[in-house]
Design a binder for these strands. Sequence first.
DNA 1: ACCCTATTGCTCGTATACAATCAATTCAAG
DNA 2: CTTGAATTGATTGTATACGAGCAATAGGGT
Lengths: 149, 149
Amino acid sequence: MMNSSEQPEHHYDLDTQIGFRLRLAMQRHAEIFFNVMETGLTQAQYATLARLYLVGSCSQNQLGRSVALDSASIVGVVNRLKASGLLTRTRDEVDRRRMIISLTDEGRALVERVIPLAKQANEATLAKLDTAERMMLVHLLNKLTADDS
Amino acid sequence: MMNSSEQPEHHYDLDTQIGFRLRLAMQRHAEIFFNVMETGLTQAQYATLARLYLVGSCSQNQLGRSVALDSASIVGVVNRLKASGLLTRTRDEVDRRRMIISLTDEGRALVERVIPLAKQANEATLAKLDTAERMMLVHLLNKLTADDS
DNA sequence: ACCCTATTGCTCGTATACAATCAATTCAAG
DNA sequence: CTTGAATTGATTGTATACGAGCAATAGGGT
């Protein structure tokens, strides 16, 4: 229970704050995702592998930007995936600042195997919403993030 | 640019995955929140202080649960807020397992000062949505997270 | 050729997060 | 009263995240 004495009167509802709601939704999805994937892949790792699968090889920073991980964050993700033998990091001989990230055969095979699982996790998270509501939610989140303004 | 050769054909759109969309929205809001707050308070810290302000003193675990921080996470948040002099941690003499967390006067003053700023951050994040859309978004996120099922 | 700036990737410091594990304490059942 | 289960809180290990700052490299302008 909660100590329900002595509240200041402010009528401030934390529960309707968008940040708090987003965090709860993220927590829920992260749990579902991790359970459904059964591979130990996190969302960040999956997004990285999936993007790499879709666009082919690219530089580490480009890869990070394409999945919204900054250069400090993508390093760790790539290191761990590399340690698992799912991708390789090679120096670009044309632009020697760049590291080219590529899927290994194992990485490619894993991605092909888990894409259906990721979709399944997506479905499970959205289970309580009907089709119209799902589209609306994605639409609204898209609108929040659109950088057109 | 992106290396746009050699894509496998899978028609898989990462961008409509709910987890990815949620993460982008969180990133955006976190940035807005941190800038608007100007106090250096993070969302987790703010939520903790705000909840404490609303419910009065409570045990550390209860506090954590009420803002969706598990016992491992709330420790760090409370430690940092304690180090800033915004709250205190006292041993409960009735149940000696419990640590009672309470706002200091500084903590209370700070909360009162930043509640309007948090609302402002909320507004800024939702700026691109009209009233109906805002309500819809919160409603849909609520529905995702509801533990009634 | 040379300089200045931008880009790339790295490391460090800080702050969440969560699982697993442990110690201290409480409380109910016998 | 004692034993055993449950709760509370701390710590450890792993994985994001982001800002700041650094070294290496590239590339445009002179």
